[in-house]
Design a protein around this nucleic acid. Structure first.
Lengths: 267, 267
DNA sequence: GAACATCGTTCCATAATGCGAAACGATTTA
DNA sequence: TAAATCGTTTCGCATTATGGAACGATGTTC
């Protein structure tokens, strides 16, 4: 089955489009932004921008700093976003396993799903005091390309030919670092290998200095619905480490979670 | 200074109002909802509902289950919500202290802020295996009334008379349990005591069987900007426990965080 | 397996809704 | 004190969203 790319509706509601743009811009301004500056950024008259903001503000999607009068993102978004996260059964089931994995390996553990052919982080477990004190820049809700991450590649490796071609058609393989696989043929070869191994390594392909190992989580029906990964600084997560110990740890955790979801395969 | 209630704009944009209603309803339906059922719930024609959904879907605020064709909340909300959380410096600074508090007390720790005179959970730390295996139903992003929670009361206790009257005018003191303080005069008396103590106890006032202890977090300017609490089942968090050991723990953590934020008061 | 029922989706003439230039009022700056 | 620069509000106009109806796809019933 092919997850269809959400095509641009020909009758996109103008207000919704504008609101989305406004929220994106507010997200980029942690200290808030004035009506004037915002109106310039969205190329709308001040009056129009203000009307949209006051409606959004009333409903909680936006808030206004009483001192600076700047507008910021509102907590309604936190409410809805975490409501959605809380509705993911997968997350509830997986959490203890993720914690355990983080504890054992002392590295950061992520769980992701695929949404519109992109990786979305739906959980993250960090150990309180990891050896180096380094913290991953990742955040729950963050999106990453599939082709440059361990979790993404391991999920892509289980795509049907049809779905993979669809993916390649709609996404271009952006070069995130010098190690990113940006060639279609090369990626296809690589994915074959990943599929056979049952895990993927992100060898500084998404972010310089960060190496990850990822494995797929299957549901009862045997479909890969998510992926787990261990991420860490490349100097600690060496290639050897990844291919030896970490690979086993991640695969075990992924299988445990899959079993928990009713998966019956995997030997 | 009075935090103003967000008054209903006389020129509320219809589309935004409708979208907000739709998202709220989607949030109530974890398994998704059909266009038809949704159109009935929002009292809009199917065509109109569908147009709004497809616009929202294109932008990621909503997603459609390919099998059931039901509509669900989309991950754009997780993205924006967690982006906002990540922008709260308070949260970054406080996190290690919250973890430590949870570890020491083996109970669930919350951090909240006040938004539109309601309590919003912005962080939650649970110990992996708490004694009873009970888990709080709370969730980051959740809103609670201020008058029935320890964190809410401790923040209300620091309101100016003006601000408190404003609060009482706009919120009615809903009776959440048989212990909830619903009388204005009684609440004012109680808040005086809380202010003197420097901490508040929620004695099953918000949820039956749950007791909490909360203390305020101050910023550099000496304003209470947030609150921490310990919550647990009433049989474990007894009144004595709360007033003796837990009170001290929470207040210490709150002060530590306040200091971290540059607060110079508190003896 | 054919006819029906029930969805989700698209269409299009209509008018209601949001639009935005301009005025207003409140702060801040010169 | 004056001027400049905001945020906010207003209101007549026309663009935009509206929603009833038709279409098409899916699955259900007999």
């Amino acid at each position: 089955m092919v997850t269809p790319q959400e095509s641009k509706p020909n009758n996109l509601v103008q207000t919704i489009e504008r609101v989305s743009l406004i929220l994106d811009i507010l997200g980029q301004n942690p200290q808030g932004i004035s009506v004037r500056d915002l109106s310039l950024k969205v190329s709308l008259p001040k009056g129009t921008t203000h009307r949209l903001l006051s409606s959004l503000s009333y409903l909680g999607y936006v808030r206004q700093d009483p001192k600076t009068r700047n507008y910021l993102l509102g907590f309604k978004l936190v409410e809805l976003g975490n409501l959605l996260l809380g509705q993911l059964d997968l997350r509830k089931e997986a959490e203890p396993f993720l914690r355990e994995l983080a504890e054992r390996t002392k590295e950061t553990v992520h769980m992701v799903i695929l949404d519109r052919n992109e990786v979305v982080y739906i959980d993250k477990v960090e150990v309180a005091h990891n050896p180096s004190g380094l913290r991953m820049a990742s955040r729950i809700g963050l999106r990453n390309p599939a082709h440059s991450s361990a979790v993404g590649k391991v999920l892509l490796s289980l795509f049907s030919d049809e779905a993979l071609n669809q993916f390649l058609k709609e996404k271009k393989l952006s070069k995130r670092t010098e190690h990113t696989i940006t060639d279609t043929v090369q990626l296809k070869e690589h994915l074959k290998m990943v599929r056979n191994q049952g895990y993927a390594i992100d060898d500084e392909e998404n972010e310089k200095g960060v190496r990850c190992v990822g494995a797929p989580i299957y549901n009862e029906a045997g479909n890969a619905v998510a992926a787990v990964s261990i991420s860490g600084p490349a100097f600690r997560v060496t290639k050897n480490m990844a291919q030896e110990t970490l690979k086993k740890e991640v695969m075990k955790t992924a299988l445990d979670i899959s079993r928990r979801l009713g998966y019956r395969g995997g030997r």
